[in-house]
Amino acid sequence: MNLEFGRVALVVLFALIPIAGIVMGLQASALRTRIPILIGVFAGVIPILSLYIPKQFLSGQTGMSPRLDQWLIIVYAFALLLGVVNVLQNSLRRIRRREKGWPFSAVLLTGLFVTGGLGVYGAVSRQGIGYRPDGSATPFQWITDHFFQPLQSTIFALLAFFMASAAFRAFRARNTEASILLLAGGLVMAGRVPLLEFLAAPFPPLQPAAAGASQALGKLTEWIMDTPNGAAQSGIIIGAALGAASMAIRVILGIERGYLGVGKGE
């Protein structure tokens, strides 16, 4: 039996203490809310310590911190199963009750079973879920290539349409700040593309002037992106990082509990 320190410590912190807490929580209800917070404290402190202490038991390949990462993947797999069960429950209910839009649920379940089934078949038949050695696609890969990838691209491409409509509707010079934003946005949009050359294309005599103006506009765009934009981005990134660090400390110390649904703070 491997009784290395990190392994034993993890078992104590994440198995024995919670089990003892649950048992004692049967008598003292306050313990029931404290145990999840305590687990959060352990799970938060270990990676922080491993940032500074490179000892094998803590930060080595099989140390406590990397092992916690692996545990997260295992917990994630079970949670995903929970998600799939939830999809099944909700879709079957909609179909059974013939709720509005139930055919969509039927399509969803068909896709889930066909794709999932082909994935399982690929694993069982040992041909995998990618390409075969001869370069031909397995059925799972075929679905990925011909359904999944084009559908992904399609939804992403919708952005162009929504951007245009949002720009038309929301980009208004309502006040001074909005006007500055509008001007900067307009300049960057014009400066990122050869817009002036495009507009001057039907008028050959104007083309040299358009090319020169386009160069100048490009430089102005670069300055806007580099200086005011860079400064603003730094401000938001540093502010948000501090906010995140403060929130993380609150979570690790058990001060912030809203995410657990066990009270608003202590």
Binding site: A164, A167, F168, R172, A190, V193, L195, F198, L199
Partner: peptide
């Protein structure tokens, strides 16, 4: 791809301009 991007930027700038003129 930049040809398409140039044209769409121009069109969106026109949208913004027209939208603002109408708003004013």
């Amino acid at each position: 791809g930049m040809d398409g991007q140039t044209v769409i930027h121009t069109v969106i700038l026109v949208f913004i301009l027209v939208g603002n003129l109408a708003y004013m």
